[in-house]
Design a protein around this nucleic acid. Sequence first.
DNA 1: TGCCAACTGACACCTCGCTATCATTAGCTG
DNA 2: CAGCTAATGATAGCGAGGTGTCAGTTGGCA
Lengths: 136, 136
Amino acid sequence: MPQPVQRNTRQKQAIRNAFIQANRPLSPEEALAAAQRHYATLGIATVYRNIKSLLAEGWLEPVSLAGQATRYEVAGKAHHHHFHCRKCGRMFDLGNCTGTVLPRPPRGFRVAGHELLLYGDCARCVQSASAGRRSR
Amino acid sequence: MPQPVQRNTRQKQAIRNAFIQANRPLSPEEALAAAQRHYATLGIATVYRNIKSLLAEGWLEPVSLAGQATRYEVAGKAHHHHFHCRKCGRMFDLGNCTGTVLPRPPRGFRVAGHELLLYGDCARCVQSASAGRRSR
DNA sequence: TGCCAACTGACACCTCGCTATCATTAGCTG
DNA sequence: CAGCTAATGATAGCGAGGTGTCAGTTGGCA
């Protein structure tokens, strides 16, 4: 049985644009908000459905985050890590991880990969915090 | 108003023992299974309640894991990272992270800390996989 | 331009991790 | 040992993230 023919809907285009323009991992809710700037009546179910199909196509890849909704970013970037702002919750890309020395696992363990997450405050949140302190 | 007097119940002892003997981060479900070997009729609600109070006491600390229930381990260890087995789901401690070079964040970002996770197959799962291959 | 199935939006529903409730049990103190 | 009450076990409930359903819409081909 053949695959059904895929249609290139305005909604899917809006979602792809949202991810391209953001250039950082987006949660489904963030993707909805961003894509609604391209296509105002977009619904959350459509975002989830299209994220799923873009994952299947290999156009997106998941960036999971403990205790939070999984974020997604455009696939195919070089190996890199992420920064999570604990104030605004946004995630950002960091440069590649050259020179990172990994701890040695116990005997017999097979390491398939690693994830490194930095967390703290992003530039915007640092800014607005110090602005708030000045104005008080 | 004074704090209510804390009682040292067999259930709480069983839960503490489970974490001490495991010597690795346990999810509430894992802690339940392990503690039931000390106190068979233990219920899951009691595990959650005691994890909460052990966290408040500073005896446990959380080890969060994307897409999974948070695990907990005995507090006070030196800074270290974890290994997550994708086959059996168990988490293990790794040695400290001396020599780890962190990627530089963008200008204006304030880094508060980092988490490093290795993933792959633990020794037991590597073993049983190759044993399975042999017996086939 | 007409057709029709892929797609959409709205919303009910599901799962999972966790918390609240409540009758019963059992530490602790005197 | 009696009595007070913190703690327990069973289970209902909650919230968040995500999926299923279905009537209505629309992309794309003939």
